[in-house]
């Protein structure tokens, strides 16, 4: 009897709370992730498609695991970019996960690649490195991890399409100088450590010229084996 009274009281209290909430929704922001991530849009675009600023990356359609890892790294300061570090500092894990999934599930069309400003032989060198790597210098091909279509692999490997050369080159530089790091074994730091500045320019330029593939989605986990261990993509 006592328990039933309590249960009834709780039910009534819930109803009252529900009524109150319903009355308030008219004057409340939309209860959506789109409204919650508006702080991201001046730099990353309304659907994560990127903006005219070449240093701000596209987020849309990247694997949620990759995006979540980046949000965690920005929050802790492991990946350094003060405007991002500041925005995320006091946000809890489940919320960052929800943000990652939101942008992973957005699929605005990939942009038309901009005509490259570098010489043809530089582009050819970039294509060579990205497609075949350079075994003599311990440089694996980009496609060996980021996929034959460069669309990435679930859950942790990002696609490399729809990014501008300036952004790719800045990130490779950050890996080389250690201002961008990831979970050990930090595969990208190892790879970038073998690249020269000329390599970086060439690879970034070639990647930025790639047209959108028919299916830009990251391939499922385990579609192909990675050439070496990677902390961001546990087996």
């Amino acid at each position: 009897m006592f328990a039933r009274t309590i249960a009834l009281a709780i039910a009534i209290a819930n109803l009252a709370a529900f009524d109150g909430a319903a009355a308030q929704t008219a004057n409340q922001p939309p209860d959506t992730m789109a409204a919650r991530v508006e702080a991201c849009t001046p730099c990353h675009g309304n659907k994560g498609e990127g903006t005219s600023d070449v240093y701000f990356p596209r987020l849309a359609g990247k694997p949620a695991g990759y995006l979540y890892n980046q949000l965690l790294a920005f929050r802790s300061g492991r990946r350094k970019y003060p405007p991002m570090n500041y925005l995320l500092e006091f946000l809890p894990d489940p919320y960052l996960q929800a943000m990652a999934e939101y942008f992973a599930n957005e699929h605005p069309p990939l942009p038309q690649p901009a005509p490259s400003e570098v010489r043809k032989d530089v582009l050819a060198q970039g294509e060579q490195l990205a497609s075949s790597g350079d075994a003599n210098r311990n440089i694996p091909a980009c496609v060996s991890c980021h996929g034959p279509g460069l669309t990435g692999m679930q859950p942790g490997i990002p696609g490399l399409l729809g990014l501008r050369a300036a952004y790719i080159s800045a990130q490779l530089g950050a890996w080389r100088y250690g201002t961008r790091t990831a979970k050990s074994p930090d595969c990208m730091q190892l790879v970038a450590g073998h690249l020269t500045e000329a390599d970086v320019t060439a690879v970034a330029a070639w990647l930025a010229t790639r047209p959108a593939p028919a299916n830009p989605a990251p391939v499922p986990k385990g579609t192909y084996a990675l050439p070496f261990g990677c902390g961001s993509q546990p087996n």
């Binding site: 922001p29 409204a35 919650r36 991530v37 508006e38 702080a39 991201c40 849009t41 001046p42 730099c43 405007p83 500041y86 925005l87 995320l88 006091f90 946000l91 809890p92 489940p94 919320y95 929800a98």
Partner: peptide
């Protein structure tokens, strides 16, 4: 700079101000 209020038990998914 914009900003997010803290994520708390009472407001786990705060709305943010764009920079």
């Amino acid at each position: 700079n914009g900003g997010y209020p803290p994520g708390t038990k009472g407001n786990p998914m705060p709305y943010g101000m764009p920079p």
